[in-house]
């Protein structure tokens, strides 16, 4: 496969995954901002800005944290490179460039998403309904993934799409967990605690999974285990890395030896990792190390496959 094509498929799915993650994160922030805890409301509004690293850019334009400004910033703001609007735009542009390599159902899916997004953008978030817009984003992402699963051949195109998804997802889960655990302070009342953890779980779609696996009340140790080490949890760091480890060796040709090794080393650390050890090291340190490694892997992927000179 052409390196450029592989890169476009990879970024197509990374940006689509990013749009979905942004929608999840904002949906939770929006819901919690409606709950009358003054402490949490502010935290919930700033969390997405911190996680995406765009607090400075936001404050430059808007000055203060206002719920509708934050929502606009992450949805239809064309000047924010991290807005859902721009993520979907770039995803669709990449799809356009490789439309010959994806199935017509995948292309029509993402092209329709783009056409509808433009209509929604001119209608405005409030007239659509905040939560229904986020639901729509998630559904469009599911639809594309479903169309991909159901229609595309199991070739390198499929693999690079999947690799993009898991790199982006691992990065996202690690960031959310990192920012959320910093907000954990002993002074919080148990009710506030509950909503905080609840928000974290729901923003990675893991609330139901948590309830099923852990019967006791919500604790940070359990959440960390669930989102870092659990193999059953599709958004856990381990699941993402495991998929990368499976996918890389199946790419045609003998390139990418460095990427394969880095992925395998990272997976071994998680496969045989242990939550007590992580708690001893410190979750913050562990996540920083993970982020460094996953981004190093992304860099190596770029050099080995996507920008071959």
């Amino acid at each position: 496969m052409l390196s450029r094509t592989a890169a476009e498929l990879y970024w197509l799915s990374r940006y689509l995954e990013r749009a979905e993650n942004t929608a999840r994160m904002l949906d939770v922030a929006w819901n919690l901002s409606l709950i009358p805890f003054s402490v949490t409301a502010r935290d919930e509004l700033s969390a997405p800005l911190i996680i995406s690293g765009s607090m400075e850019r936001y404050l430059e334009t808007h000055g203060t944290l206002q719920v509708h400004n934050v929502l606009h910033f992450f949805t239809f703001d064309q000047d924010n490179p991290g807005s859902i609007y721009n993520s979907l735009r770039i995803a669709r542009e990449n799809a356009h460039a490789v439309r010959g390599k994806i199935t017509s159902e995948m292309w029509e899916g993402i092209n329709t998403t783009w056409i509808e997004l433009q209509e929604m953008s001119s209608a405005g978030l409030l007239s659509i309904g905040v939560s229904s817009f986020f639901d729509w984003v998630k559904q469009r992402s599911h639809l594309f993934r479903g169309a991909a699963y159901g229609t595309i051949m199991r070739n390198d195109a499929f693999r690079f799409l999947r690799i993009g998804t898991f790199i982006e997802r691992a990065d996202n889960t690690a960031r959310i967990l990192g920012v959320r655990q910093q907000a954990d302070t002993a002074s919080d009342s148990s009710a506030v605690q509950f909503y905080r953890w609840n928000a974290l779980l729901r923003s990675v779609g893991a609330f139901e999974a948590y309830r099923e696996i852990y019967s006791d009340s919500i604790s940070f140790d359990n959440i960390a285990e669930l989102l870092i080490l659990r193999a059953e949890m599709p958004r856990s760091l381990r699941s993402c890395v495991e998929m990368l480890c499976e996918l890389l060796p199946t790419i045609e040709g003998n390139a990418g030896i460095n990427a394969k090794r880095q992925a395998a080393v990272l997976f071994a650390r998680m496969r045989y990792g242990d939550i007590d050890h992580i708690m001893n090291v410190g979750v913050q340190e562990y996540l920083e190390d993970f982020l460094r490694r996953i981004n190093e892997l992304a860099d190596t992927l770029r050099q080995d496959y996507l920008e071959v000179l």
């Binding site: 496969m1 052409l2 390196s3 450029r4 790419i251 040709g253 496959y305 996507l306 071959v308």
Partner: peptide
């Protein structure tokens, strides 16, 4: 995506 080397044209692919 294309380059010339040793009198032939090649394309850059994920497999070289």
């Amino acid at each position: 995506d294309l380059f010339v080397k040793d009198g032939h044209v090649f394309m850059r692919t994920t497999a070289g």
